[in-house]
C-alpha cells in the first residue's frame, strides 16, 4: 500500500523531469538541424516556471477547469501504467486529457481556437483508435489486457507487430504535434492558426497544459517500449529511436492538411494495424 502511494507520487514527478528533458533535447536538436545553437536543455522548465507565475486571465471559466483536468488525467494514466494496470483503463483515462483540452479550447469565442479544436478532434480520433488497436494486439498475444502479463512473453512484441509499430509511429508524430501532422497546435509558434488549441490558454493554464503534454509524450514512449519488453536496454533504445525519428521527420516535412492526415495517414495506419491484428489471430 505504502509502495503504491510512493509510486503514485514518484512517477508523475519523474515523468515531468523526463518529459521536460525530452522537450529540451527536441528544441536543441531542432536548432542544430537548422544550424543554430539552440536554447539550453533546461529551457522548457524555465518556460513553464515563468508561465506558472504569470497572471491568470480567462474568457470562459472552462479554460481554468480544463488544464487541471487534463494534467490530472495524464498523470493518473502514467501512474496506472507504472502499476502495470489494464491497458484499456490506461487509455480510457488518458483520453480524458484530450477531451478537456478540446472543451476548454472550444469554450473561447476565438475563431483560431475553435477551428483548431475541430482539427484536434480529428487528431484524437486518429491517435486513440491506433492505441486501442495496440491494446487489442496485446490481448491477442498475451491473452490479457494487463501489462503485468507482458513480461512472460518469450520474444519481443515487435517481431509479431511490425505493421502495428509503423502505425504507432504515425500516432506518435500526431501526438507530439510534429510536422507533417501538427495541424491543431504546432509546437513552434507561428502557424496559420496562431497556436491552435493553445491560443486562448494564458499563463499558468498554458503551463499546466505544457506539463500535461510532456506526460502524454512519456506515456506514448512507454507504450512504445512495450514493443520490446523483453530486454531493458531495448526498452530504452526503441522509444528513444522513435523519438529521434519523429524530430528528424519534423525538420524535413512540411505540414499536411487534415484531409491528408485522415485519408492517407490514418487510413493507411488503420489498414496496417487491421492486417497485423488479423494475422495475429490466425
Amino acid at each position: 500500500m505504502m509502495q503504491t502511494a510512493a509510486l503514485a507520487l514518484a512517477v508523475p514527478c519523474a515523468a515531468i523531469l523526463l518529459g521536460g528533458l525530452l522537450s529540451g533535447i527536441d528544441r536543441r536538436l531542432t536548432a542544430r538541424l537548422q544550424s543554430r545553437q539552440g536554447p539550453p536543455l533546461s529551457q522548457p522548465f524555465l518556460d513553464v516556471i515563468k508561465l506558472m507565475a504569470k497572471e491568470r486571465m480567462v474568457t470562459n471559466p472552462w479554460q481554468a477547469f480544463s488544464p487541471v483536468a487534463s494534467l490530472g488525467a495524464a498523470a493518473f494514466a502514467l501512474v496506472f501504467f507504472a502499476l502495470q494496470g489494464d491497458l484499456l483503463v490506461i487509455l480510457f483515462v488518458h483520453m480524458v486529457g484530450g477531451v478537456f483540452l478540446v472543451l476548454g479550447a472550444m469554450a473561447s469565442p476565438s475563431p483560431y481556437s475553435q477551428t483548431a479544436s475541430q482539427r484536434e478532434l480529428w487528431q484524437m480520433l486518429s491517435c486513440e483508435t491506433l492505441l486501442f488497436l495496440i491494446a487489442g494486439a496485446l490481448y491477442l498475444t498475451t491473452g490479457s489486457f494487463r501489462l503485468s502479463e507482458l513480461s512472460a512473453l518469450p520474444e519481443p512484441l515487435l517481431y509479431r507487430l511490425p505493421l502495428l509499430f509503423a502505425a504507432f509511429f504515425f500516432a506518435l508524430t500526431v501526438k507530439m504535434r510534429k510536422s507533417p501532422f501538427d495541424l491543431a497546435g504546432c509546437h513552434h509558434a507561428h502557424q496559420e492558426l496562431v497556436r491552435g488549441v493553445f491560443t486562448e490558454y494564458v499563463g499558468p493554464y498554458l503551463g499546466l497544459l505544457e506539463i500535461a503534454h510532456w506526460l502524454d509524450i512519456v506515456l506514448y514512449l512507454a507504450i512504445c517500449s512495450l514493443f520490446w519488453a523483453t530486454s531493458t536496454p531495448a526498452m530504452i533504445l526503441l522509444p528513444l529511436a522513435a523519438f529521434l525519428a519523429v524530430i528528424m521527420l519534423d525538420n524535413v516535412a512540411a505540414r499536411l492538411t487534415w484531409r491528408w492526415m485522415l485519408g492517407w495517414g490514418w487510413g493507411a495506419a488503420f489498414v496496417l494495424s487491421a492486417l497485423n491484428l488479423s494475422w495475429l489471430k490466425g
Partner: peptide, 30 residues
C-alpha cells in the same frame, strides 16, 4: 480509485476556476 481521483481532480479544477473568476476577464484573440 478512479472515482476518488476523478473527484479530487474535479475539486482541484473547480478551485482553479474560482481563482480564475477573481482575476481580470480576458477577451478572445481576434
Amino acid at each position: 480509485v478512479v472515482f476518488a481521483v476523478a473527484a479530487l481532480i474535479g475539486l482541484l479544477a473547480l478551485s482553479g476556476v474560482s481563482k480564475a473568476m477573481v482575476g481580470r476577464k480576458g477577451t478572445a484573440y481576434m
